[in-house]
Each structure stands twice: as C-alpha cells, then as structure tokens.
C-alpha cells in the first residue's frame, strides 16, 4: 500500500509517465538519413551527458563524478570500484549508498537513487570519453548493445523508464543535479527516428 503511493509520487516528480509501447514506431525507411543523423546527434548529447556517461565506463569499473561541485569529471570519490560484477559485489556494493527507491528526490551531493538496483552499465556499453563514431557503432552493434535491434532499443528505453530505472532518472536526477538534455520522450523518439533511418553513423 505504502509502496504504490511512493511510486505515484515519484512518477509525477519524474514526469516519466511513459507507458511501454506508448510510442507508435515509424516505418523502417520512412525517415531520411539526414533526419536520422540529426536524431543521432541528439542521442549523442544525451549519452555523453554526465547523468548517463558517468556510469557507462570502461573496464577499470570506476564510475565518474562530475558537475558544478566537482570541476572536471574525476573518478568517483571514496576509492570506489564496482568490480567486474559492475554492482560492487567484489568490494563495496553500489547499493550500500545508492539505495533502491522510486523517490529520486535526494539532498544535494547525496547518493542518487532510482527504482532498480544501482549498477554500472555492462562494460561493452562504454560511453565515457568515447567519440561519436565509437558510441554510434556500439549502439547499433547487437554484440555490444545487449542483442537489440533498433525497435528493441526503443523498447529497452521504455521498459527501463517504466521501472523508474536510470533512463527515467536521467531527466529528473534530484539533488540539484543537471538533468540530461531535453526530455525522456524526445530521447525515445530520437532513438526511433535514428533506427527507422537505418541507424546512420557519423564518419569520425
């Protein structure tokens, strides 16, 4: 009983009233390559944003901190290493501080939290410090994106958001943090536009 109240409150905070399958997907090929490339540019701005990239890090398994209080991005304080498990099982579990809650509203500089278990993204989803071309190639490579085609990528975003996971949190991160650019809905739509355009990637 208590739980459902919390979820409702959090959804209204997050503005993430995004039902799975709510978006009508465009026909494959119905979007021009130019529009697809423009959509990817917007996707890129989102995924390299600190709210997203800080936990999409490489095989050192060390999340990053950045933002107005921290200057340049730097490794997560407290000597944190999430281990190969990417959930901190070998050392300090992420969830010791990043508890699971649908209430995203934390104090500034407190441990952010969302509705599923806090963790690093799989190592093959590495975005931090990567170029446009590298990230684009990764996003469309089923070997490195969880075996998803473009429709499944859209579904993945919608599903994660429906659980109040990181995709929802990225746009309402609490604690006076800067949210990811634009809105969740636009990001999902961009993923669909880019996919329907054939997932075009920049040259460099």
């Amino acid at each position: 009983m208590q739980k459902s109240v919390v979820i409702l409150a959090a959804v209204s905070i997050a503005g993430a009233a995004l039902a799975e399958g709510a978006l009508t997907l465009p026909e494959e090929g119905s979007i021009s390559r130019a529009d697809g490339q423009a959509a990817f540019e917007r996707i890129y701005e989102v995924v390299i944003h600190p709210r997203c990239a800080n936990c999409h890090v490489g095989e050192d398994n060390i999340p990053m901190w950045s933002g107005p209080s921290y200057g340049e991005a730097r490794p997560h304080g407290m000597h944190i290493n999430a281990g190969e498990s990417r959930i901190g099982a070998e050392f300090l579990p992420c969830q010791t501080c990043h508890v699971t809650s649908d209430d995203f509203d934390t104090a500034p500089h407190a441990a952010p939290r969302f509705g599923i278990a806090w963790q690093l993204a799989p190592v093959e989803f590495e975005w931090f410090g990567k170029s446009r071309a590298e990230i684009c190639a990764q996003l469309k490579d089923p070997e490195r994106n969880g075996g998803r085609d473009w429709r499944e990528l859209v579904e993945h975003l919608e599903h994660d958001a429906s659980l109040n996971g990181p995709v929802a949190w990225g746009w309402s991160p609490g604690g006076d943090r800067e949210p990811a650019p634009r809105t969740l809905e636009e990001h999902v739509e961009d993923m669909a536009l880019w996919g329907a355009a054939g997932q075009p990637c920049p040259a460099e």
């Binding site: 407290m78 010791t96 508890v99 934390t106 407190a110």
Partner: peptide, 27 residues
C-alpha cells in the same frame, strides 16, 4: 553527514551494509 559521504550511519539490511541516512523507511 546525511548524504552517504561518511558511513557513520551504516546498518545491515538482511546482512548487507546500507547507509541508513539514505534509505527512505518506506523503501
């Protein structure tokens, strides 16, 4: 500290260490 930066509030929840200043009791 109230923000999971010092660890003085650490308790166990089902055996796992948790910073109790971060956990809304409803969760």
């Amino acid at each position: 500290c109230g923000i999971a930066q010092c660890g003085a509030c650490t308790v166990h929840v089902d055996g796992m260490a948790v910073r109790s200043c971060q956990l809304p009791v409803g969760d």
